[in-house]
Design a protein around this nucleic acid. Structure first.
Lengths: 135, 135
DNA sequence: CTTACTGTGCTATCTCAGTAGTACAGTTGA
DNA sequence: TCAACTGTACTACTGAGATAGCACAGTAAG
């Protein structure tokens, strides 16, 4: 199973699904032109409502990530992503994997690791800035 | 300002606030026994409803992270976290910072970086596992 | 054409996060 | 005691996410 949204994470399911589709495309797990699972089969597999999948697909089409063909199915949009970008991201993936592994080896929980990253991405380096902030 | 929840991220504000309080405690920005901002002042500063802050505080007390003293205020719970753990996390923080920096230098967007980490933490290494999954 | 698939559109209903406003109760310090 | 703070509790309302179910429409293949 390629996608696995978590209904009890607080994050809307359709958003999680969107993220996971994007991730699959970025890493090359889904290639341009390739067909995505149908709305109803995917909803059944993930045990969620077809409307939820449809909403995710609709948003993804709006963002230009996928293409919806009425009656035919959903397909990964053609081409904006070059192989170089995919390779780049694959390399990043290895770096992330080793970082997470090292953090886990230190005994940090997944929640703690997640907070570290969120804080870093948000520009809040909590402990090292006494008064600093950004817009 | 120590906490900065994002109302339009899809994640409930009170959950974000809880995460950020935990993070501040873990990194040592808030020390055991130290008083947290009052519910009303904090709500006003973050431009959110006092009920939302109150909910976050209540949940945090339920988890044993902080202690609420009626009429007196909210305080960081005493002691379960040793200095060693904090040092450990601070070191992890540096590792995370350098990792994120390297990913950004590669031209990856924050969204892409976030997806990489989420996928790694969730055990979904999309591109490198053809059929594998975990419970 | 017919069948079986695909996406589209709609309504009704439920839950819960968040807002808004008010009232109550314990603590602190002058 | 009194004032000003603190957290607590409750009701009512709004909006979004999600479920459920149904009807409609385009596509592909026999």
């Amino acid at each position: 199973m390629l996608f696995r949204p978590n209904p009890s994470s607080g994050v809307p399911i359709y958003l999680q699904l969107m993220e996971q589709v994007k991730h699959a495309i970025e890493t090359g797990a889904l290639r341009p032109g390739e067909q995505l699972p149908g709305i109803r089969p995917l909803a059944e597999e993930l045990v969620i409502n077809p409307n939820t999948v449809a909403k995710a697909y609709r948003e993804l089409e709006h963002e230009g990530v996928i293409e919806l063909r009425h009656g035919a199915g959903a397909f990964v949009a053609a081409g904006p992503r070059a192989r170089k970008a995919t390779d780049n991201l694959r390399a990043g993936q290895a770096l992330v994997a080793s970082t997470v592994e090292r953090l886990r080896a230190r005994g940090l929980s997944d929640d703690e690791i997640r907070r570290l990253f969120e804080a870093e991405l948000a520009g809040r380096a909590t402990a090292s800035r006494t008064g600093g902030q950004r817009g």
